[in-house]
Every structure is written in structure tokens, then in C-alpha cells.
Simulated assay, not measured.
Amino acid sequence: MLFLRKKDYELILEHALNGLPNEACGLIAGVIKEDKKYIEKVYLLTNIDVSREHFSMDPKEQLAVLKDIRANNYVLLGNFHSHPETPARPSKEDKRLAYDSKINYLILSLMNPKQPVLKAFLIQEGKDVSEEVIEIV
């Protein structure tokens, strides 16, 4: 189970809305206690692809984030990106690019910007996808 504070959800949503019509992206970090993952920090990154169909995170920003994660004794819990025009589910490209089966992949669908949908997934090496419960607290 993944726990996300409401203020952090709103930060992700604002980042995604501001990125329209393109995909927005970022990283999430926090702590793991037993089988529960608590997001303590959301990092908003630049989609250097400037695309509505895919994203690439700025490498310099990623490096700075990883340094900050270590400095705060957090672990990388996953990444997030928006789908401006499609549902909150991993695309073929999302599955192909999933590099770590231990992290969460969050997708925020903005098909209907007035009713955004955020879902979290685990993507296994065989590209099997399972949805993880995400609770906004």
C-alpha cells in the first residue's frame, strides 16, 4: 500500500495541469515500514521530450533528486507522469521503459481535467502489471 498526502497529490496535479498539453513527470521518495510505503517528498521534474505521448526526465534534475533523497535518508519509491488524453494505465511504452520492478509507477489521467484519476502500478520484468492501492491522506 502506498500513502500520499493530499498536499502532495495536489502538487502532482498542479504540475500535470501546468504541463498540458504535454505529459508532466517527476519522482517520489519516502520511507517503507513493513509493507507500507509513505511518500515523504514529491519531486517535480522537467519533461525534456516536451511531448503529449511520452516523457524523459532531465538527467541533471534526476541527479540532484537522488542526492536529496540520500541526504534525507529516504528511498526512491517510484516515479509519476501524466496521461493528458488517455486513461491511468501503463501504455506499451510505459511497460517497455519500466526498469525497476520494486518501484511504483504512478499515472495521472487528465482525460477529464475536472475529474483526474491517479493510479499506482508495479511493473514486473516480464511486463506484468499489477495495480497497487494508493491512499490519499
Rank of each mutant, 00 (worst) to 15 (best):
L2H: 14
L4Y: 05
L4K: 10
R5Y: 10
K6V: 10
K6R: 12
K7I: 13
Y9P: 00
E10L: 14
I12T: 05
L17Y: 04
L17C: 11
G19M: 03
G19C: 06
L20D: 11
P21Q: 10
P21C: 11
E23I: 06
A24I: 11
A24M: 06
A24C: 01
A24H: 05
L27E: 09
A29M: 03
A29E: 01
A29W: 00
G30Q: 08
G30H: 01
I32Y: 03
K33Y: 07
E34N: 12
E34F: 15
D35Q: 13
D35Y: 15
D35R: 08
K36Q: 09
K37D: 07
K37F: 10
Y38Q: 02
I39L: 01
E40M: 04
E40S: 10
K41C: 00
V42G: 01
L44W: 00
L44Q: 02
L44A: 05
L45Y: 01
T46D: 02
N47G: 03
N47Y: 03
N47D: 02
D49S: 03
D49E: 07
V50E: 08
S51K: 08
S51N: 04
S51C: 13
S51R: 05
R52H: 08
R52E: 12
E53G: 05
H54Q: 13
H54G: 12
S56Y: 12
M57D: 02
D58I: 04
K60A: 12
K60S: 15
E61K: 07
Q62Y: 12
L63R: 09
V65F: 02
L66I: 13
L66N: 15
L66G: 12
K67Q: 15
R70D: 04
R70S: 06
A71H: 06
A71C: 14
N72H: 03
N73P: 04
Y74W: 01
Y74R: 00
G78I: 03
N79F: 14
S82A: 01
H83G: 01
P84C: 14
P84K: 03
T86Q: 14
R89Y: 15
R89N: 10
P90D: 11
P90T: 12
K92G: 13
D94C: 13
K95L: 09
R96N: 10
R96M: 14
D100W: 05
S101Q: 09
S101L: 04
I103P: 10
Y105P: 13
L106G: 00
I107S: 08
L108C: 00
S109H: 11
S109F: 03
S109C: 05
L110K: 04
M111K: 05
N112H: 08
N112Q: 06
N112D: 11
N112A: 11
P113T: 11
P113G: 06
Q115P: 02
K119F: 09
F121K: 04
L122H: 13
Q124W: 01
E125H: 06
K127V: 11
K127C: 02
D128Q: 14
V129W: 04
S130H: 09
S130Y: 03
S130G: 10
E131F: 12
E131T: 15
E131N: 02
E132R: 10
E132V: 14
I136S: 00
V137P: 12
